[in-house]
Design a protein around this nucleic acid. Structure first.
Length: 236
DNA sequence: GCGACAG
DNA sequence: ATCTTGTCGC
């Protein structure tokens, strides 16, 4: 699929925060996705400073894997809570660029609007690829919530300090830790929650992300050692 | 100052 | 994220 960069990835943490504040205005926090035909999932595995960025495309609603791509790249930006996007997105967009299919929706392993600056990695990737995106994280970064009921399908609001709803805490499987769902780009929260549950295969993690996770784990151990090359994009 | 903190 | 053994429950 075609990829358009909006800024350089060679930035300092301070500059990264500035970029997120601008990104915030580019995010479209609503919209409906008709029944999707193709759904992508993305994940990154690391071997020291080498990222193995993986993207998988599944059919919907069958959830069969139709395509997988891997892009290896050296990473320099460190992991800093709130700035995860600057560590994982560069390699991921290169991987998305190798995709033959054009997904109707993308699941990202991380937060979307449920972020201190309302600009999590799901928003960032959604804006760059101009595709509906859902942030589906395994743990909390920002916000408060009340524990959802134990039954699969139970949902509770994730709120910011002012009480505004920034996402949802979703129980995707009976009695197991919930996942944190938030808007990434061009989709409303209600449908993000709906699709997160519709993409479940009996596991806590939605199938698109779970398959990307499996691919990343394999790429990390069975993958070669060379590092691929790719443009880092242009400046603003 | 202290505690929290996606992957 | 990654490291790393056993253990609880369906």
């Amino acid at each position: 699929m075609q990829v358009q960069h909006f800024h350089s990835w060679d930035v300092t943490p301070k500059e990264a925060i500035q970029i997120q504040q601008q990104l915030r205005a580019k995010v479209i926090p609503h919209g409906k996705v008709g029944t999707p035909n193709l759904i992508a999932g993305a994940d990154v595995a690391f071997v020291e400073d080498i990222a193995h960025a993986c993207v998988v495309v599944l059919s919907f609603p069958k959830l069969d894997v139709l395509e997988t791509v891997v892009h290896k790249a050296k990473v320099t930006f460190p992991y800093i809570p709130g700035l995860l996007s600057f560590r994982e997105t560069p390699a991921l967009v290169q991987a998305f660029g190798k995709l033959k299919h054009d997904p109707d929706l993308i699941f990202i392993d991380g937060q979307g609007l449920a972020h201190p600056r309302a600009a999590g990695i799901a928003c960032h990737i959604g804006v760059i690829l101009d595709r509906p995106t859902i942030g589906c994280a395994k743990s909390l970064l920002f916000g408060t919530y009340k524990e959802p009921k134990q039954a699969r399908g139970s949902v509770s609001d994730l709120c910011d300090d002012g009480g505004g709803v920034i996402g949802a805490v979703v129980r995707t499987k009976d009695g197991v830790q919930p996942v944190f769902v938030s808007i990434g780009h061009k989709i409303d929260l209600a449908q993000a929650i709906e699709l997160s549950l519709a993409c479940g295969k009996g596991y806590r993690i939605a199938e698109p992300t779970r398959q990307a996770d499996i691919l990343a784990e394999r790429a990390k151990s069975k993958g070669g050692h060379g590092v691929e090359q790719g443009s880092q994009g242009e400046l603003f």
